[in-house]
Write a protein that binds this DNA or RNA. Structure first.
Length: 352
DNA sequence: ATGCATGAGGG
DNA sequence: CCTCATGCATA
């Protein structure tokens, strides 16, 4: 029944764009970012190549693995569950080193004395170059802030909507459903964000998670159940999103937008709780599946080093980096985009 | 739980 | 091309 994809995009997108948090969020998120800002922004001005070279060299040195020669394989692997896909394109070369090193590489000096990481590099370079005459204020080449929290939960792929059914008509709805930004410049702010200090969000997320678990509902269940609430502009969400909400790994705005919806669900669920589901019904074996490139650890280290220096490389630079790392340009571009997004997420984005 | 990807909307 | 919200695929 229904190609199971019939419920994917519910654009509540349109709503939140380029939020400068100009006035309203200046106290919350904007603040956090400011705290992280490094005084020296743009380090480029003609040193590009040398900087990139150094970043790479250092990143490479950082990964001194027992291989005397350079990696003979492609820097990335592309997985796909489909055998019918002939386009092993980006990786005709299967990487034998796959998980051995690609998983745990936490940028924190546990590698030894030579592990000069991006932050150090930046620091080093900035002191010697900040005089070259550029001062473009950048976002925040902050050192990484990685938080690793793991706790296994359920893994339950839902391609179902056995109880969901319906929805999907919202793709054409008004773009401002649960927007947080109603302001169009007039700053008549009053309706949105206000009542949303990160403190409360954190508290809510925690409560939500606990009660959800108490109800014996999985993140995926919550996601699909949201469609049943029939809130205008709100369709279902994925396990990923629910998970991210609970772990506060969404942007501040996203958190605020989702809170009311999840709260509504929680209330309804507790009212008439006690309903499970799980009919992992079958699907067609013939679906074009999305591929997920896997960037190997060494390359990832290089990218991180570059990112520390310049979070927003130009197209040319991206191309150059892509070539050096033997990655597709688009892969590199997306990596930077995702990295930037990551930087803006909640959680311990700053002082906590 | 998270990495890489897609797409809308805005320049 | 970017930012953002989201999701599939995966570890």
């Amino acid at each position: 029944m229904m190609t199971m994809n019939g419920k994917q995009h519910f654009s509540m997108h349109a709503a939140l764009h380029e939020p400068k948090y100009s006035g309203l969020h200046a106290g919350s998120e904007g603040m956090r970012r400011v705290c992280l800002s490094a005084p020296q922004g743009n380090l480029f001005g003609g040193f590009d190549e040398s900087l990139l070279a150094r970043a790479e060299a250092l990143a490479a040195a950082d990964g001194i693995v027992p291989h005397g020669k350079s990696h003979p394989f492609k820097a990335d692997v592309t997985y796909h569950t489909m055998s019918s896909v002939p386009c092993t394109s980006s990786s005709a070369t299967t990487v034998p080193v796959s998980h051995s090193i690609s998983s745990h590489h936490h940028h924190h000096h546990l590698l030894g004395p030579q592990s000069l990481e991006a932050a150090d590099l930046l620091d080093h370079l900035s002191s010697s170059l900040s005089v070259t005459g550029m001062g473009a204020p950048q976002e925040v080449p902050s050192a990484h802030h990685h938080h690793h929290h793991q706790q296994h939960q359920q893994h339950h792929h839902h391609h179902l909507q056995t109880m969901g059914q319906l929805h999907q008509a919202m793709a054409s709805m008004h773009p401002h459903a649960l927007s947080v930004h109603g302001n169009g410049g007039g700053m008549a702010c009053s309706v949105n964000d206000v009542e949303s200090d990160p403190r409360e969000l954190e508290a809510f997320a925690e409560r939500f998670k606990q009660r959800r678990i108490k109800l014996g509902v999985t993140q995926a269940d919550v996601g699909s159940a949201l469609a049943n609430l029939k809130i205008p502009g709100v369709g279902s969400l994925s396990q990923s999103t629910i998970c991210r909400f609970e772990s506060l790994t969404l942007s501040h705005n996203n958190m605020i937008a989702l809170k009311p919806v999840l709260q509504a669900w929680l209330e309804e669920a507790e009212a008439a709780y006690r309903e499970k589901n799980s009919k992992p019904d079958l699907f067609n074996g013939s679906e074009r599946k999305r591929k997920r490139t896997s960037i190997a650890a060494p390359e990832k280290r290089s990218l991180e080093a570059y990112f520390a220096i310049q979070p927003r490389p130009s197209s040319e630079k991206i191309a150059a980096i892509a070539e050096k790392l033997e990655l597709k340009k688009n892969v590199v571009r997306v990596w930077f985009c995702n990295q930037r997004q990551k930087q803006k997420r909640m959680k311990y984005s700053a002082v906590h």
